[in-house]
Structures are given as structure tokens and as C-alpha cells.
Amino acid sequence: MTEQDIKGLIESKLQGARVFVTDLQGTGDHFEAVVIAPQFKGKSRLNQHRLVYDACGDHLTKEIHALKLQTHSPDEWKKDPKNNARLA
């Protein structure tokens, strides 16, 4: 899979999300994703991750061997000033 494939999977399930995907090894199976989504508001980190896992569906554990995940609601994301620099 490509970074774009995974970004697409996540964005299609979580409307309005900002998604950054990195292929960690260039092998198309180990990825890192940073996801900022309005749907995460008020959810525990555990349930935020579950939403992303659900979006990846069966691809996760099959084509995707590893997905390092960072999830934030838009408010959580804004609270950390270093993140704004990252998006700029």
C-alpha cells in the first residue's frame, strides 16, 4: 500500500480529518500516521485509535503490518504549540 492509500482510507471514514502518513521503511507495509479529526473530540485515546483502525479495516494486519499512530482532536492538537509549527 502507499501513503496515499492509507490517507484515503482514513479520510473517507473520518470526514474533515487531517491525515499525515509516512511509509517508515519504504516497503509499503510499515506506516506512521498522525490523525487530527473532529470525531475524536471527547473520546479516549483508546477509542480514537479504534476509529482509525476501523477505517483501515482488513488492510490492517494484512497488507499493513504495522501502523504507528498518533491521534488528536483539533482542540488537543492546537493546545500544543509545537504542532502549529509543524503544520505551517
Binding site: 485509535h49 479504534r50 490492517l60
Partner: peptide, 24 residues
């Protein structure tokens, strides 16, 4: 657990998370 990946850490019967959450 309704959690697709390994590892999974449980404390007192409750899923705490996978590696990303535990490290965080």
C-alpha cells in the same frame, strides 16, 4: 478486546492500549 493489533496491555481486566498509547 476489539483491538486489532499486538501488543495489548491490560491492567485489572481493562485494555490500556497498544505500544503507542502505553509509550504516550
Amino acid at each position: 478486546s476489539n483491538w486489532p493489533t499486538i501488543p495489548q496491555l491490560f491492567v485489572n481486566g481493562e485494555l490500556i492500549g497498544g505500544a503507542d498509547i502505553v509509550v504516550e
